[in-house]
Amino acid sequence: MDPADKILLDHGSGGRIAHRLLRDLLLPAFDNPALAELNDGAILEVEGSRLAFSTDSYTVDPIFFPGGDIGDLAVNGTVNDLAMCGARPLALSAAFILEEGFPLEDFRRILGTMARAAREAGVAIVTGDTKVVPRGAADRVFINTSGIGLIPPGVRVASHRARPGDRILLSGSLADHGVSVLAGREGLAFQTTVQSDTAPLHRMVAAMLAAGGEAVHVLRDPTRGGLGTALNEIAESSGVGVLIHEETIPLKPEVAGLCELLGFDPLYLANEGKLVAFVHPEAAEAVLAAVRADPAGRDAAWIGEALAAPAGRVVMQTRIGGRRIVDMLSGEQFPRIC
């Protein structure tokens, strides 16, 4: 590593460069089997029961965006990380880093959102911490939440369990969160009515597992890095090929419009209330029905299938009938004109 190297924004983008940071620095530093699994949360065996344990820090600009704020993200994000392990969330912690001068009014509003989100998710925030740093040492407010959850017996979802023949389900329209945040970002001056999709998914997951049991092989919430990155991660850890069909992917017209205007690929924009599932075909219809019964899953659709080859690769059949490779996000997307 070059001593002049610094952390870039790209290191946090959830794409390939973030992966490299994880692989080269974090994994060797903390070296242990639970971490090496690289699931959304760690799975710990404790006296016969299996606990899921997950943590995430939240920074977002703007902190209030259409459809939510940083508080929703902090609660739902960790609830969802637990849910993607197949767990029922038990309790959350919340820690705040506040910038000197941050308006109390805004802080109060965020706490209110968090309390509401926790209530809606049916999980309590049971411990926390607050630190204040001098002006300029943080951007307004950063939140960390951690959570523990209980994995019911018989549930075995993990990102390496995708098998050729699995069908791939997306629980709703793509990239709503990413677009709502972008549109709200200062300076770009776009007006949309797209709202962030932030929502807790653990009830949907519980219904899916009740309907499909072990046939639900993989669950993943495609947050930073988007669907494209999530599918690549699954393809890599399961050693399967993934084929998706562009025209089956639900996408709101406004989301498509903003992506066209700014040159973004919706496959790489963040989602905060969506999941992608790899399901054995025998349980496919039952699982889809379970997802559609959830308000956050009404637009769920089958978007593709896992194949034996090309292992570790994601291929998309385009709307016009062509084929292309879908790689991981290779750096935060910037609005472009070319």
Binding site: F190, G257, E260
Partner: peptide
């Protein structure tokens, strides 16, 4: 207007 997205 582009599919509901507006801008100056």
């Amino acid at each position: 207007d582009v599919d509901g997205v507006r801008r100056e």
